[in-house]
Amino acid sequence: MIVNSIERGIVIDHITAGTGNRILDYLKIDTKKNTIAFIMNATSKKHGRKDLIKIENVTDVDLTVLGLLDPNATVNIIENGKIVKKINLELPKTVTNVIKCKNPRCVTSVERNAPHIFHLMDAQTREYRCEYCDEIVSMKNE
């Protein structure tokens, strides 16, 4: 499948096949207003299969969550048809409403509107700690 290159926007490439949908959800891009190319299961020399997202005319997306969802993805910012910036993905220090606390004793299990906030505890093991109950969640297999 061939998708034309974009003049201006963001290209998120090398997404682990199957996670593109989730990434698109978390980036909160208005799919009614913006032009988006989303390719699933494209062939990749490096990974065998990959997902790919191209967002036209948008460059100011909050990409912090991306490091958590798929650290293997690559992000390029495009201006005038050229790559002007490559973004290195890092694990975010804090994430809100991305990880859900599974501790049944945690207040988030009863307080409806409390945001689920997790703080990075150990970057090597990709472990996060719940702001409220200190439950540790590993994102290694996520």
Binding site: V107, T108, V110, E111, C130, C133, D134
Partner: peptide
């Protein structure tokens, strides 16, 4: 005092 962990933080 609350039985749920983190309630005072909320």
């Amino acid at each position: 005092r609350h039985p749920k962990e983190g309630a005072p933080r909320v």
